[in-house]
Design a binder for these strands. Structure first.
Lengths: 100, 100
DNA sequence: AGACTGTATATCAGAATTGATATAAGTCCA
DNA sequence: TGGACTTATATCAATTCTGATATACAGTCT
């Protein structure tokens, strides 16, 4: 079990702007899960890239995007869509199955 | 095992414009998987809504969007993002876990 | 220190997605 | 047939996302 303050810090560190404690608590469970999913995918992308021994620059070329965007993806930045993350993972051969 | 022509029909019916057989075959495995994921989520959304005995109109209200967009989502229309689909499912309490 | 490699941050114009609206089409029942 | 209800399609302005560029930061080596 992870405390709320701790979780908040984790999210803020990841670039999710959360103004006040009230704002944070206003995150619905669905929103929290969405953010967590994104961070999980982001982490997975980073891991996968390392496993393939690629630099962000090289991965960017493979994905036909730029190194800065890859950096954003690996942070799970709010400005990056799930689509982009999923496409990247699929391109790397990772096959996410959606289970209940 | 599903034939290529059959699969193509399925995708075209779902609104994915695929001009020629050559174009279709040009879909990379990653792209195919992406489309299939989307259609799976779309179908899942439709099922879930029905299970909750909601009209598209009512679901739209819950999701703070419009009935026409819900229709698009349930078709897995190319103009609908994974984000939107996932958010919708999460809002309905479906909790997709990403497994290997 | 300086050069080099890899990653992070800021900004922005162009592209894609969004909710909304209007309206058509399908379904059921009296 | 016609109305009530539900879903589908078309269009569009506003928002969001994207790739690109410039540049900063961090680590390693000589």
């Amino acid at each position: 079990m992870i405390g709320k303050t701790e979780k908040r810090k984790k999210l803020e560190k990841a670039g999710w702007r959360i103004g006040s404690a009230a704002d944070f608590l206003a995150l619905t469970p669905a929103e929290e899960r969405y953010v967590e999913m994104k961070l999980a995918l982001a982490h997975r992308l980073s891991e996968t890239r390392r496993r393939h021994r690629l630099t962000q620059e090289k991965l960017a070329t493979v994905l036909k995007t730029s190194q800065p965007r890859v950096a954003m993806m690996e942070k799970g930045d709010p400005s990056v869509s799930l689509d982009l993350l999923v496409r990247a993972l699929l391109a790397l051969g990772v096959t996410p199955r959606l289970t209940n």
